[in-house]
Computed example of a mutant assay.
Amino acid sequence: MNAPGTPRRWTPTPLIGGAAAVHAGALASLLAAPATWPWAAGGVIASHLALTAAGLWPRSALLGHNWTTLPEAAGARIAITIDDGPDPDVTPRVLDLLDAHRARATFFCIGERARAYPRIVEAIVARGHAVENHSQRHRHNFSLMGPGAMRREIDAAQTTLGDIAGVAPLFFRAPAGLRNPFLEPVLCALGLHLASWTRRGFDTRTGDASLVARRLLHGFAARDILLVHDGHAAKDREGAPVVLAALDTVLRAAADRGLATVTLREAIVG
């Protein structure tokens, strides 16, 4: 596999190749015997349903390579990944928490939010963390975009984040983890690699930090990629972002088990 940052040739996965074959076979069948159209249509519909299901499964590799755990060479290390920021209230407090634990994290930032709060992005990098691509606008219809619109959205974030952070992102995470078959060819052309997670805490929906921490620690092990949020963070009854207490619990558990933290680019690129 090419290193992140290097454009590479796109190779269809078996699912995508199979779907293309179904479409070609359906067309040939219609040309040879028009009466077979119900079977042809059924095959095409089934292939589209399979592609859609794969896109709705964030941890799937059916549409292209997807980092869901760190490589074996990472050893006794884990990756904390933090999405949807920067946020002027939450992100600085997350950075202080990471400093207190001497931990490093990967921040998947939204381009427009980075443009609004560039000093926070600069602080993320200055304090030893990595900034990666979470799209320019975090559109809810991202997984419905065609290849041109998808590339413009991702490339805009590459430019925005690269200009502010001083180094271009190497990894991309789709909004909500949802995607379609057009994403992998776009990432190949831009030299980006898709990264999802081993498990997530659902800390944008749950106002109970202990529950968020339990989700993250269920089956907790070396090489995990954990997902929390500094943007759109849910708050507890006292109004505190649950990510703070949940992340504190996770980092204490990691230290107890002798697991160090590492950014994705450190673990995967080296």
Score class of each variant (00 low, 15 high):
residue 65 H to V: 12
residue 178 L to E: 11
residue 268 I to E: 01
residue 54 A to W: 13
residue 89 D to V: 14
residue 84 D to F: 08
residue 67 W to Q: 00
residue 94 V to F: 01
residue 269 V to T: 11
residue 256 D to N: 15
residue 148 G to R: 14
residue 155 D to Q: 14
residue 64 G to W: 07
residue 182 F to W: 13
residue 160 T to Y: 06
residue 252 R to F: 04
residue 173 R to V: 09
residue 247 L to P: 01
residue 40 A to K: 06
residue 142 F to K: 07
residue 154 I to E: 07
residue 155 D to T: 09
residue 35 A to H: 13
residue 28 A to M: 12
residue 248 D to T: 06
residue 266 E to F: 07
residue 178 L to N: 12
residue 155 D to W: 12
residue 121 V to T: 12
residue 206 T to V: 11
residue 54 A to P: 01
residue 163 D to V: 14
residue 248 D to C: 13
residue 270 G to Y: 03
residue 195 A to T: 15
residue 138 H to E: 15
residue 55 G to M: 02
residue 192 L to M: 12
residue 14 P to M: 03
residue 216 L to T: 08
residue 211 L to N: 04
residue 86 P to V: 06
residue 55 G to Q: 02
residue 225 I to R: 03
residue 208 D to H: 09
residue 71 P to Q: 03
residue 103 A to H: 01
residue 66 N to E: 02
residue 131 V to E: 04
residue 29 S to T: 13
residue 111 G to T: 03
residue 254 A to P: 03
residue 168 A to R: 13
residue 50 A to G: 03
residue 18 G to C: 07
residue 232 H to G: 00
residue 183 L to V: 05
residue 24 A to H: 10
residue 177 G to C: 14
residue 226 L to H: 07
residue 199 R to T: 15
residue 216 L to H: 04
residue 158 Q to S: 07
residue 148 G to T: 12
residue 255 A to G: 02
residue 90 V to D: 08
residue 70 L to Q: 11
residue 198 T to E: 09
residue 100 A to Y: 09
residue 201 G to S: 01
residue 152 R to T: 11
residue 128 G to C: 00
residue 157 A to V: 02
residue 258 G to M: 11
residue 65 H to F: 14
residue 227 L to V: 08
residue 121 V to K: 02
residue 241 P to M: 00
residue 154 I to Y: 00
residue 174 A to P: 02
residue 44 V to Y: 05
residue 152 R to S: 15
residue 118 P to N: 13
residue 89 D to E: 15
residue 57 W to T: 11
residue 115 R to P: 02
residue 249 T to C: 12
residue 8 R to I: 04
residue 107 F to K: 04
residue 171 F to T: 07
residue 185 P to C: 13
residue 175 P to M: 09
residue 20 A to N: 11
residue 47 S to R: 03
residue 112 E to H: 03
residue 95 L to G: 07
residue 115 R to I: 11
residue 124 I to C: 10
residue 132 E to S: 03
residue 80 I to C: 01
residue 152 R to G: 08
residue 224 D to N: 12
residue 214 R to I: 13
residue 94 V to I: 02
residue 198 T to C: 02
residue 119 R to N: 15
residue 188 C to P: 14
residue 53 A to W: 12
residue 268 I to R: 09
residue 68 T to L: 01
residue 245 A to L: 04
residue 61 A to I: 02
residue 132 E to D: 08
residue 37 W to F: 15
residue 217 L to A: 08
residue 128 G to Y: 10
residue 82 I to F: 02
residue 41 A to C: 09
residue 38 P to K: 12
residue 144 L to Q: 13
residue 48 H to S: 11
residue 136 Q to K: 09
residue 57 W to P: 05
residue 48 H to D: 14
residue 248 D to I: 01
residue 267 A to V: 10
residue 212 V to M: 03
residue 149 A to P: 10
residue 160 T to Q: 05
residue 51 L to G: 04
residue 104 R to C: 02
residue 188 C to G: 04
residue 74 A to Q: 03
residue 98 L to P: 05
residue 243 V to N: 03
residue 3 A to S: 06
residue 227 L to C: 10
residue 97 L to S: 04
residue 101 H to E: 10
residue 210 S to K: 15
residue 172 F to A: 07
residue 61 A to W: 06
residue 152 R to K: 12
